[in-house]
Simulated assay, not measured.
Amino acid sequence: MAPIRERPERCEGTEGEEQPEILTARDDLAAAHQAAGDPGLAIPLLERTLADRVRVLGEDHPGVMASRINLAGAYQAVGEPGRAITPYAEALIQLMREFGTDHPLTVRVVRTLHALLAERDGGAHPGP
């Protein structure tokens, strides 16, 4: 994983942290950490990428939505489902606006968010 780990740092040194390619490289590195079974290393990268994408690309950019979903998934993977609720809810707003309520990704996020809320509240949420 050394080449992918070096990619964001190599790019940041030459192009600046606000380049979309750097944001993508950081996101790719986080995905590699998750795939390797270490979502804890992915979380700081995902948090930073989300903040930078919001600042650089704007709230409504598809990359921001993807970053929110990725971050929420990483929170779930490390056993912190409560932290996943906000990024999923924010992504859901974008998904519904961009794709509507019947899009498969919208449906998946609705179901995941429902399950997280039910878990948090002891099963007190009706089905989606």
Rank of each mutant, 00 (worst) to 15 (best):
N70Q: 13
S67P: 02
A32P: 06
G73F: 02
A77M: 11
N70G: 07
A66K: 00
L29Q: 10
A42L: 09
E59Q: 06
A66H: 09
S67H: 00
A35G: 11
D38E: 15
A31V: 13
P44K: 00
P44I: 00
A30I: 14
D38M: 11
D38T: 12
G63R: 12
P81H: 07
A77C: 09
M65C: 15
D52N: 08
L46H: 08
G58F: 05
H61P: 02
L71N: 09
D52W: 04
H61D: 12
R55Y: 06
G58K: 07
A31R: 14
A66C: 00
V56K: 08
A30H: 13
L45Q: 03
I69S: 11
L46Y: 08
S67I: 03
R68M: 03
A32I: 11
T49A: 14
I69F: 08
G82L: 12
E59M: 02
D38L: 13
P81S: 10
A77F: 12
G40N: 06
P81Y: 07
R83F: 10
E59A: 09
E59V: 05
L46V: 08
V54G: 03
R53H: 08
A35P: 00
M65R: 15
A72F: 08
L50I: 01
V54C: 10
I43M: 01
R48Y: 00
D52C: 03
Q34K: 14
A72V: 10
A31D: 11
I69L: 15
T49M: 01
E80A: 14
R53W: 05
D60L: 14
L41V: 09
D52L: 09
A31P: 05
V64Q: 04
P62T: 12
L57W: 01
A74G: 11
D52S: 08
G82R: 13
R48N: 10
M65H: 10
V78M: 02
G63H: 11
V56R: 01
R53I: 12
E47Y: 01
E47G: 04
V54Q: 15
A36V: 07
A35F: 05
N70P: 00
G79R: 05
R68P: 03
G37I: 10
G79M: 03
A74S: 14
P62F: 04
E47K: 09
A36P: 05
V78D: 07
A51L: 12
L41K: 15
A36L: 14
D60Q: 14
Q76V: 13
G79K: 01
E59G: 02
L71I: 04
G79T: 00
R53V: 12
G40F: 02
L45H: 06
Y75G: 03
A31Y: 07
V64F: 02
